[in-house]
Design a protein around this nucleic acid. Structure first.
Lengths: 332, 332
DNA sequence: CTGTTAGCGCGTTCAG
DNA sequence: CTGAACGCGCTAACAG
């Protein structure tokens, strides 16, 4: 059978479409008897308002979209959980889509905001240039999370990656590190900021970095192993390695251990994110905790303000505090 | 400035809305000159067709929704990547949403199919009863993946969980296991099937299971540790443990190791999924590989058939082959 | 409190 | 090849 419409419901209930619509939208100006009749008809016909018709008429969808390169990341999934919970409290549905780091697919997804498929957008480390993000933020309801483009109009929620890296490297130095190395990435803005923090801490201590390794690939376990192998080929060996993620740090620890050296005895290793990987690793990883869930919540709040207050009240950039978690992979 | 419509484009280009629409949809029956004029006007006005209006008119959205309890799972993210790639090839956008295991939120998301927000649905271990899944599959475009409800109309793509568990437990027995234990879950259908496979293999070998531990919570690392601790309190100790996921197995290995016993020397441990956790664990885990990406692809193909061929061609249940990966956590 | 009606923006007839 | 006009299903404004 074909899908029922308001017309059908109205006919079955013996009222007008206006009344049906009022019941549907909880208008108080409806008699109890009408309400009951409409409710009965809706149940009988198994009626559901058609989303596209409603969205067209209301000019909004009550849906937002969250974009990330990939979903299998403890930080991303936690951020989106926070955003999703906050959104739900305001009646919004949060949809998630992976871009796979493909600019074309990213563009297609961003178009969903432009063509009104969703009301707002949360972006996690976009592949597009900062300038484009700024232009978008200028006219559309977009908020970034964990990384904020270096553009006037861009706004979002993040930790201070530079400071977090600085704090971690200082911890490595305070616990005996003298030949410092870093395994990071320059592909992401947050990675570049962490590198800055690393360099600053090393310089302030009057040391010079012996090795600096970077990868433009993903922050995965195998990359960690591969880069640690390079590190182990260097002389003199580093005695402390700062990694851009727990997963990379786990790979690094594994490679060092397999080579017969001890962590942290011979080489201390630090991670980033405080994901479950940090606890799964042996020894458990010293790391930086990002308040991912809270960041997601705040990102949605900011987005909501942007969506509901057309031009004003841009909350700007919000930075949340990070936390140094000392475990067993450094000489705590 | 307000959003441009086909009307605006038509006026700017000096043609009718019909012509604009034809250009938009690539109709061949348009002169080159009209095409050029319309293209110019579209660019000038930065015009995008409004999704809700188009969806209403066309009665479809070219979007599908993929549901899972949580996103931070190597299998789920890989399945959805496969589904997303296949969908993209057919012009569909794949949206993903976590249910958090909350029936209410799950229902709200499923309603997106009922109200036409999306054209199809891929479900990953739903919380709703099999019967409800069957009812849905009867009338709506729904396909399950990794787990298929025990209902006439339900269909989807999965491995044979029962057989996979059987194969793994037989491997444990063939490599010396005599006192077999399992850490699984009865909350999910796949978990119950794996338990069946476990019991069958133990029975066929003429052994009896010494311990059987189950949790209704998530398959996470901490659960693995906690349950392994219970296992270690039993006498006689098991000499082989089959776990329902790599993550649980990693927790199990960690607890055993911390207790001063050796894996696999004292107790062999097996995982499931062949996720990156299996390689991160020390010793690396023997596990079962699920062809997750391919399962996602096939799930979408099945869904596409369901969406485009109203009633016929239900592909039914598709089972893909699994693979036993022997690594170092069992006496391979 | 209720019914009627006018669009929302678009795709698609049907004439020409 | 093109333009005019209708209606998808719904909400909201207006009259009663």
């Amino acid at each position: 059978m074909a899908r029922a419409t308001v017309q059908d419901v109205a006919k079955t209930a013996g009222v007008s479409v206006g009344t049906v619509s009022r019941v549907l939208n909880g208008s108080p100006a409806v008699s109890e008897s009408s309400k009951a009749k409409v409710a009965a008809a809706i149940r009988q016909l198994n009626y559901r308002p058609l989303a596209s018709a409603r969205d067209l008429r209301r000019d909004r969808t009550m849906r937002i979209l969250a974009l990330a390169k990939n979903l299998y990341s403890p930080v991303i999934s936690e951020v989106f959980r926070g955003a999703g919970d906050a959104a739900a409290r305001s009646g919004y549905v949060t949809l998630i889509a992976p871009t796979a780091g493909d600019p074309e697919r990213e563009q297609q997804l961003v178009d969903m905001l432009r063509n009104g498929s969703v009301d707002g957008l949360i972006m996690f480390s976009p592949t597009m240039p900062d300038e484009d993000v700024g232009d978008m933020a200028e006219q559309l309801s977009v908020v970034q999370v964990c990384e904020i483009a270096d553009a006037e109009a861009a706004f979002g929620v993040s930790i201070d990656d530079r400071q977090a890296a600085f704090d971690m490297v200082r911890h490595l130095i305070e616990t005996g590190g003298r030949r410092l190395a870093m395994i990071g990435t320059r592909a992401a803005r947050s990675g570049r900021l962490r590198e800055e923090g690393f360099r600053k801490a090393v310089a302030e201590a009057g040391l010079s970095p012996d090795q600096m390794l970077f990868t433009d690939g993903d922050f995965d376990f195998h990359a960690g192993r591969r880069l640690a192998r390079e590190l182990l080929g260097a002389r003199p060996l580093p005695d402390a390695v700062f990694c851009g993620s727990d997963t990379v740090a786990a790979g690094c620890v594994r490679e060092i251990t397999d080579a017969g050296l001890r962590v942290p005895g011979d080489i201390a290793v630090a991670g980033f994110d405080d994901s479950i990987q940090a606890e799964m690793c042996v020894p458990e990883l010293t790391t930086i905790r990002q308040p991912a869930y809270a960041m997601g919540q705040l990102a949605f709040e900011a987005l909501l303000a942007r969506m509901t207050e057309p031009e004003g009240h841009r909350r700007g950039r919000t930075f949340l505090p990070h936390e140094l978690i000392v475990r067993d992979s450094t000489n705590g």
